[in-house]
Amino acid sequence: MGEFDWGVIWRYRAALWDGMLTSLQLFAIALAGGVFFGTLLAMARLARWKAVSVPAAGFVNLIRAIPFIMAIFWFYFLTPMIVSKFTGQQGEAVGPFTSAVVAFIMVESAYYSEIIRAGIQSIPRGQPGAAYALGLNYWQSMGYVVLPQAFRNMLPVMLTQAVILFQDTSLVYVVALKDFLGAASKAGQLTGRIVELYLFVAVVFFILCFAASRAVKGLQARLAVAR
């Protein structure tokens, strides 16, 4: 103890910042893709058509049954294969970042679909009924009546999941992608200062996630008053 060298963080600030940008990029893409495909998956699971609802349920349950890291390995393996099959390009053309993005979108869409499904189901059945009675079709009744209410109800849960997603981006470490944690790890190997670097990573994550979850709580309280 007592011989910390905190200067290492400053010396490696550029690499750490690049890592943070990678993490944020992955986070943003996975969030957008996860919510978009998650919504479609949730609608598919609630569809009356078995040919639609059963495969959707199968996919969601499969993804939710395996570890996130296992899913990352799977898509890291599958994405280049599938891409080269469809484009004729070499599998290597797909970089690790793309594979990670695909893995995260897939996993997050499964997680988000469960949240959104609960949100849709929390809307009383009379609401889509009233929308249909006005002559709205399925997509209109979802888009104007059901989903706006569902998203409003689900907003706090979805944001909480977003905080978890941001933390989960650190898992790309297992495929040697240089995210924030990966960058710190690399710098740690070069300098032997892993203690300082990992503590720094922990503190940064804590500050960001703590602030975000506080904000979500505040929002939740405001929504509770508004209704």
Partner: peptide, 30 residues
């Protein structure tokens, strides 16, 4: 069905106004 329903008005036991829309928006959506 949507086309048919557009011309059949329905009033529900639990009103089923859309709670996230103003009264005016409820009246104009359809």
């Amino acid at each position: 069905l949507p086309k048919l329903r557009a011309h059949i008005g329905m009033v529900f036991q639990n009103f089923e106004l859309f709670p996230h829309m103003s009264i005016t928006d409820n009246l104009t959506l359809g």
